[in-house]
Each structure stands twice: as structure tokens, then as C-alpha cells.
Design a protein around this nucleic acid. Structure first.
Length: 638
RNA sequence: GCCCUUGUAGCUCAGCUGGUAGAGCAAUUGAUUUGUAAUCAAUAGGUCCGCGGUUCGAGUCCGUGCGGGGGCACCA
């Protein structure tokens, strides 16, 4: 006779076996109405699952993550049902839930079009209305394979073959339609409601392998209520408004063009932003003891062969053949050049740690499908640095890099930073003792930051472990920017050495680090994080002076010149438009400060300040304005 | 690279089933002289992404190339 223990600790005793729905009814009729699935001793089960022994049960509704997840999983099934009803002969493959929704991959010769999505949605609604009952059967493995092959579902048959021998082959039915599935599922198709929407069609490789057939994936989103669905769709729209490609155009920062896909044409304003970041970073690195260098863009192929890039990275490298048939490569990374600078002249242990930074522009031939605005380009500038040090110095150097990076992210308004630590991969160089040492050194540095970190087992570079620094932006998206890698390989390959205390020659350890990662990408992230409303000091155009009418043009020009003189970037808008028009125009362009000049200001030698997104006005003596705001307009460097 | 989709004025877009292009904003000019998110009017503006083909005739249909977008794969 099962004793059921509820989450609040209450025990209910039943005289015979019982299923989830009956338990829910026993608790309350409203719970029975809202119940979707249940967890039995922590394992998700259908509500129809019969319980005959003591256990802990939690009835789950759409308020529980697992409940909502089950709604999405069911929506994926109904999508597959609808597709097979509308397009007979389509094979189903897999249809998991994902963040905010689900997808289902299909195999079908003819492509699905956007207009098919509408039809499918209508059919899905019909299926919900039919309220088909769900039931579960356990099938014999070989029978199941035979069955799915017979009905032409070869992918399903293949999936069954790969299910571990000790697992049941469960088949879920919604009415007549059935699918191999682990479950659990809602009691009937009516339970999912109609708060779903199919969002896009896309290609996806079978089993994620580009050697396999490309399937057609339909993405959708599904929620517990109309309101949740609308909120989600609204959130997507808001995110689109922040798109750096759109804002970059509107703010006149940069553009892309066919002649050089994946390379940025920086306009004056965008370039000014770019340069501000570089000079800020340069100042921070000067303070942190780095020496800036610069190395050639084009280097002989033999160097890349020695470094291992030709072999490992050749497919991504641009090459150039000179008229005398020599082959050069355009650098995809700065490290080999930097090692060559290190190699000039004898180095002693006294020189270590030697920190060499380089704002190096690198070119990588990325697959065309990977390109994405500033976030994935083929030519970009790294705020790169290589730290040559001894093994003993690794921890200390990693720690100081980490501290520098966190302080810089904070200055730029990012406070949510996650670390991803990747340790030794299977394919690696160097002996395990050295790996132990470098992994420990890195881990120790991470722990000292007290930051949250995740471990990616075996994801390190072949030459050493690494940390990736992930920023979480204003709307909760994660971006990988900075990276810190310990390299026990390249210095040796390129013959780097120093003379140690005991007079022996040693190979230095090299730390690769980039803080912004790529200036281009970082700018894209900044734009999206701030929705274009960049912090004052980094804003590409900090102020626009607006005369109230043409009578005050001269004063406005004077103000503009004074403002520029103290280092605040400024334009003066003398166009024949009224004040309202100009305020709107410059506000849309996200100019942080509008300086209004009219009779009042001329008479009292003042300016009236209107800040972006505020309709408050403040009139201030011109000199006072210059003094107060020139400080604020500079990078936060002490 | 692969699948789908898309390419028309500086920008955002319309152009139905083929009959040599249209709107709004921006620009220019003129009027207006404006006090905190669009003053009015006139003018000018296009190899309809490139190359082939079908057709009496192609922005529109077909092929191909190159971009863009959404995914997948890739991201040393």
C-alpha cells in the first residue's frame, strides 16, 4: 500500500496503487486541473504512471520549470504530428526542447517555406482541439526497429539502435500518431494550450555532423499562457532593436560591403570609438607594466610551418604569393611575431615576466556562413599580449591578468562575469607534470577571484589550459570576449629561451591573453549592451550644440569651439530646422549631451544642457560646464 | 562550407498573375526664426546586386555568380 510523501512533508496513505492525477485530485481540485506531469523520487513521470510503493511525489504545473518544459516537448510532438498530417512521407528525427522553446528536425525532399509554418500552426491548433489522449507503450527493441523501418521512419530506427541495452523502448501515442520518446508527456494534446508559435525554418545536420544529410529544422516557442508568449515575443523585438548592425548604421559608425565580406569600413564616429578603447586599454596596460610592440602583417610561410599554424590553422589563413613565387601568410594570430621579438637579444631570468602587448590586426578566412556583423568578422584587431615567464610565475601572472580584465570590464559597465575553465584535451603536447602545474596555477588564480566558474573538461588548447571570460549583457545574453591561455609549446617550437639563475638555458612559459578579445566584437557587444546609448566617456560624439534660432548661430559656434578645446567632442547644428526637430534627430542618434543656446544663454554666457533620455534641462555657466564635463568626458584612468 | 530566405533611391520599404519604376524619411532650394522628440512648399535623385537565358517585351520567369539575413557546421 503506497505511502506518498508530498513536498511539504505531508504523508498520504493509499490503499491501492494510484496514479498522479488521482494524487493531485486528493490534494485539491485546482491542482488536478493544472497538473501536467509529476516527479516521483525525483524522476519525471506521466500523470498516468501507476505508483505501487512508497515514494516522494511532486505534482508539477506550468509554474515548474519541468512542467513548462513538458509543455514545450509536447508542442514539439504536435508539430511533428501536424507536419506528418500535412506532408505525408516526411520522416521525423528528433525534437527536443531548448531555451524558450523547442525544435523538430525533419527529413523531406521539398523544403518547408515560411508560409508552410502558418499552415502547420493551424493544423497544430486543430490537433489541440481534438484533444487526443496520450498513452505510453513499451516495445521490444527489435520489433520497434522493424516497425519504424516498415513505416519508412529510418532515422527513428537508427535512434533505437543506439539506445543503451538496459533502457526501455517507450513509444508515446497521441491518438493514432506515435513517436519513440523517453517522455513524460501531458495527458492529452488539449493540455498544451495554444500559446505557441513557429518561429523559423533552418537547416541542421543529422546528428550535428556536417558529413551527414542536412535535415530541415522547424523552431518554435511555447508557453503556459498567452501573456508569457507575448512577453517573450516582445523581448525578442526589443533585442532586435539593439542589433549593433542596425544601430551602427543609424549612428553612422561603420558599414560592410561586398568587396570585402567580413571586414569593417569604419566611419569617423566608429573609428573614434575604436581609438578611444585602444587608448584606454593602452593606458591601463602601461600602468600594468606591459611594453607595446608591433609586428608584420605578412610573414613567410616557413615561420607558420614552424609554429604549427600552417598545419593546424592553414584552412583559415590568407596567403599571398609574391612575383618571385615566395609564399607569405597574412597573420591570423600575433603570437609567432611576438616570439620573434622576444628572440631578439639574450634574455635573462631578470627580464621575466616580460609582458609584450600588441594591437595586432589579424585576418582569418572564416566560413561565409559564420560571418555576423562585428561579432564574427574576417579581419579584426586584437588587444593581444604575450607574457613570457617562468613556471613559478604562472599563478601570479594569471592572477594579475584576471584582475586587470575584471577591472576593465567594470569600467565599461560589465559586472556580471563568468569564467570558463578548460583543462587538458586528449590530443596535447607536453608531459603531464607540466600540465598539472599549469592547470593548478590557472585554477588557483580563478579561485582567488571568487568568481563563478564552469569547467569544460578536455576543451583546452593542445598546448595548454585556458580561461575564457564571458560577459553577461544588459538583457542577459552571454558573450565570450577575453581569454587567457597557458602555452608550454610555442616558445619551444620557435626557439625562445632565457638564461636562468644557474646559468642554464631555459624555455620560457608563454601566456596568451586578450582582454577585449577583438576590438570589433567588443564594440558590437558594447553597442548592444547599451542599446547604442554608450557611456559618456566612450561616446563617439559627445555633444551637439543647437542654437534656438539663427540669431544665435555665432554664440553656438563659440560654445562648440570652447567645448572642443577642452576635449569634449562636439558638432554644431546650424541647419534650418526648428529646435524640436533637432532635439529629436540627435536624440535618435544617441548623442549624450545637447547644448541649447538661445537669448537667455547668450545674455548670461551659459548653456542649457539636455541629457539623452531626460527632458530635464539644466542651465549652467559655460565655464562651469567646461570644467565639470571635460573630466567626465575622459576615460576613467587614474 | 551546407539548408532556407533575401538583394528596388542615402535610409525604410511598395511594385498583384511579365508591358522600360513609386511612397515616406533624408538631401538640395525657398519660405519660416522657431525654447526641448518631426514647420511648410518645390526640386533633384535609380545599370531595380552582377552575368547569361526565355520572351515582341524582364525589377517581375529560369540558370549562375556575389552579397545580406536566419539556422547548422566551424570559432585555432
Amino acid at each position: 500500500m503506497p505511502n506518498i510523501i508530498l513536498p511539504d512533508g505531508k504523508k498520504i496513505e493509499f490503499s491501492k496503487s494510484i496514479n498522479g492525477l488521482e494524487i493531485a485530485k486528493k490534494i485539491s481540485s485546482s491542482l488536478a486541473k493544472e497538473a501536467l506531469v509529476m516527479s516521483v523520487n525525483g524522476i519525471l513521470k506521466d500523470l498516468t504512471y501507476e505508483i505501487n510503493s512508497d515514494c516522494e511525489v511532486k505534482i508539477l504545473t506550468s509554474k515548474d520549470n519541468d512542467g513548462l518544459d513538458t509543455i514545450r516537448h509536447d508542442t514539439a510532438h504536435i508539430l511533428a504530428m501536424a507536419v506528418q498530417e500535412l506532408f505525408p512521407g516526411t520522416q521525423v528525427t528528433i525534437g527536443p526542447t531548448i531555451e524558450n522553446g523547442f525544435y523538430y528536425d525533419f527529413s523531406r525532399k521539398e523544403p518547408f517555406t515560411e508560409s508552410d509554418l502558418k499552415k502547420i500552426e493551424i493544423k497544430m491548433s486543430e490537433i489541440v482541439d481534438r484533444d487526443e489522449k496520450t498513452y505510453r507503450e513499451v516495445w521490444d527493441r527489435d520489433e520497434a526497429i522493424k516497425h519504424f523501418k516498415k513505416i519508412g521512419e529510418n532515422y527513428k530506427a537508427e535512434i533505437i539502435k543506439d539506445i543503451p541495452k538496459n533502457e526501455e523502448i517507450s513509444i508515446y501515442f497521441h491518438g493514432k500518431w506515435h513517436d519513440l520518446c523517453r517522455g513524460p508527456h501531458l495527458a492529452s494534446t488539449g493540455k498544451i494550450g495554444k500559446h505557441f508559435k513557429l518561429t523559423k525554418v533552418a537547416g541542421a545536420y543529422w546528428r550535428g555532423d556536417s558529413n551527414n544529410e542536412m535535415l530541415q529544422r522547424i523552431y518554435g516557442t511555447s508557453w503556459a499562457s498567452k501573456k508569457d508568449l507575448n512577453d517573450y515575443l516582445h523581448k525578442i523585438e526589443e533585442a532586435e532593436k539593439r542589433d549593433h548592425r542596425k544601430l551602427g548604421k543609424e549612428m553612422d559608425l561603420f558599414h560592410f560591403r561586398e568587396e570585402s565580406p567580413g571586414s569593417v569600413f569604419w566611419h569617423q564616429k566608429g573609428w573614434s570609438l575604436f581609438q578611444k578603447l585602444i587608448s584606454y586599454m593602452r593606458a591601463r596596460q602601461d600602468q600594468a607594466g606591459y611594453n607595446e610592440i608591433n609586428t608584420p602583417e605578412i610573414l613567410d610561410r616557413t615561420l607558420w610551418e614552424k609554429s604549427g599554424h600552417w598545419d593546424k590553422f592553414g584552412e583559415n589563413m590568407y596567403t599571398s604569393t609574391t612575383p618571385d613565387e615566395k609564399v607569405f601568410a597574412i597573420k591570423p594570430m600575433n603570437c609567432p611575431g611576438c616570439v620573434q621579438v622576444f628572440n631578439q637579444g639574450l634574455k635573462s631570468y631578470r627580464d621575466l615576466p616580460l609582458k609584450m602587448s600588441e594591437f595586432g590586426k589579424v585576418h582569418r578566412y572564416e566560413p561565409s556562413g559564420a560571418l555576423h556583423g562585428l561579432l564574427r568578422v574576417r579581419a579584426f584587431t586584437q588587444d593581444d599580449a604575450h607574457i613570457f615567464c617562468s613556471e613559478e610565475q604562472i599563478t601570479q601572472e594569471c592572477l594579475s591578468v584576471t584582475n586587470l580584465i575584471l577591472s576593465i570590464y567594470n569600467d565599461l559597465g560589465f559586472e556580471n562575469i563568468i569564467l570558463k575553465y578548460s583543462d587538458r584535451p586528449d590530443k596535447r603536447v607536453g608531459d603531464d607534470k607540466v600540465w598539472d602545474k599549469s592547470e593548478n596555477a590557472l585554477l588557483e588564480a580563478i579561485k582567488k577571484t571568487n568568481l563563478e566558474y564552469s569547467v569544460n573538461k578536455g576543451e583546452g588548447a593542445f598546448y595548454g589550459p585556458k580561461i575564457e571570460f564571458v560577459l553577461r549583457d544588459a538583457i542577459g545574453r552571454d558573450w565570450q570576449c577575453g581569454t587567457l591561455q597557458v602555452d608550454l609549446n610555442l616558445p619551444g617550437r620557435l626557439g625562445a629561451s632565457y638564461i636562468d639563475k644557474d646559468g642554464s638555458k631555459k624555455v620560457p612559459v608563454m601566456l596568451h591573453r586578450a582582454l577585449f578579445g577583438s576590438l570589433e566584437r567588443f564594440i558590437g557587444i558594447l553597442i548592444e549592451n547599451y542599446a547604442g546609448k554608450l557611456p559618456f566617456w566612450i561616446s563617439p560624439l559627445q555633444s551637439v550644440v543647437i542654437p534656438v534660432s539663427q540669431d544665435f548661430d555665432e554664440y553656438a559656434k563659440k560654445v562648440h569651439n570652447e567645448v572642443r578645446k577642452v576635449g569634449i567632442s562636439s558638432e554644431v547644428d546650424l541647419k534650418n530646422h526648428n529646435l524640436n526637430y533637432k532635439i529629436r534627430e540627435h536624440s535618435l542618434k544617441k548623442i549624450p549631451l545637447l547644448l541649447i543656446c538661445g537669448k537667455k544663454e547668450v545674455d548670461s554666457n551659459t548653456v542649457t544642457i539636455r541629457k539623452l533620455d531626460s527632458n530635464k534641462q539644466e542651465t549652467m555657466e559655460l565655464n562651469k560646464f567646461l570644467e565639470n564635463y571635460s573630466k567626465l568626458s575622459k576615460a576613467p584612468i587614474n
